[in-house]
């Protein structure tokens, strides 16, 4: 954008459609914990749902293992979040207020409910006690699961980062699909092949949806979406596509027969979904760093308004 036309600062000023090429919106200050949290939060949420349906249809192994996976992910998630805080000792301030305008506030409460429910259920399952309470907890966990899996998409969409905010229609869907795919893949790994049918199908189906949604999102974003072709967001995107695609294919072709193939395919899908979260995460940074993504669409908007 601002090229030092004749080497002088004045020439820069005359041509400037940004301030020395400096970003307008700030890059997020979130650390690697956050994309991993997106992954584990999604895994926890979708696993809770998977668990509930498995329970309903009486697939005990699938039910039990998805419960444990979900509960474990529900423990990892908050640890990641607290670790990312600048003031971890003030983590509980998240429950000072409840703000509908803040996906993070809503998400904190959902996570609190989901985590408490899934871990209560898992503990009771392991202890084999208080079945009615366990069932109630499972129900709560299943209800909290879908919001937990999808709110993170809205969380990042509810920012001024162009590539996130403009993708607000797709992101909860993308994150929900990715969560479902992760939960399916994790369960496909953890459960013997002959009881893992729903998990496998979920992993395969959700993977396809994920890949499709990402493509749709990038296309619809147009100019703003070009960051997905560049730098880290591009690399992670390609890794994600490759892993998810290969994993889903492996699961589809051999997952039913071979546990090893199921483990390999499931692992590839999980890796692909982690990479997806990273791709989206890094895209936000890249989008913030280049002021064009803020200025160009806004200028067009302003011009269109007249």
């Amino acid at each position: 954008m601002s090229h030092h036309h004749d080497g002088s600062i004045t020439a820069v000023g005359t041509q400037m459609d940004s301030y020395y090429g400096r970003p307008i919106v700030k890059e997020p200050v979130w650390q690697p914990e956050i994309p991993f949290y997106f992954f584990f939060g999604g895994l926890a949420g979708a696993s809770g749902v998977l668990h509930a349906f498995a329970g309903l249809v009486g697939n005990k192994t699938l039910a039990r293992r998805t419960l444990l996976i979900g509960a474990a992910a529900d423990i990892v998630g908050p640890i990641l979040l607290v670790s990312d805080l600048g003031r971890p000792e003030r983590a509980l301030n998240m429950f000072r207020v409840f703000k509908v305008t803040s996906p993070m506030s809503v998400g904190s409460w959902v996570l609190l409910v989901s985590g408490s429910a899934s871990n209560t259920a898992a503990a009771l399952e392991l202890m084999g006690k208080l079945k009615p309470v366990k069932v109630a907890a499972e129900f709560v966990s299943a209800l909290a699961g879908p919001p937990l899996a999808t709110y993170t998409g809205t969380l990042i969409a509810d920012t001024s980062i162009p590539v996130w905010h403009e993708a607000r229609h797709e992101l909860p869907w993308l994150f929900g699909a990715s969560a479902a795919s992760s939960a399916g893949a994790a369960a496909a790994i953890a459960v013997p092949v002959d009881e893992a049918g729903p998990a496998r199908r979920l992993a395969i189906g959700a993977s396809v949806v994920t890949l499709g949604l990402k493509e749709v999102m990038q296309r619809r974003l147009g100019f703003v979406g070009e960051v997905y072709e560049k730098e880290e967001a591009g690399s992670y995107g390609r890794i994600s596509k490759l892993c998810t695609g290969a994993g889903a294919a492996l699961l589809a072709l051999a997952g039913k027969r071979s546990r090893a193939a199921a483990v390999a395919g499931g692992s590839l899908v999980l890796a692909g979904e982690v990479a997806l979260r990273w791709s989206v995460f890094r895209a936000g940074f890249q989008s913030a760093r280049d002021p064009r993504y803020v200025v160009v669409p806004q200028r067009e908007r302003k011009a269109a308004r007249g």
Binding site: F95, R96, V97, F98, K99, V100, T101, S105
Partner: peptide
């Protein structure tokens, strides 16, 4: 004094003002 309570009790349902 919990802002969450004040939020709903004192007419700041969004928790954006005095409750916070």
């Amino acid at each position: 004094r919990w802002p969450l309570l004040r939020q709903f009790r004192d007419g700041d349902p969004l928790g954006l003002g005095q409750a916070a």
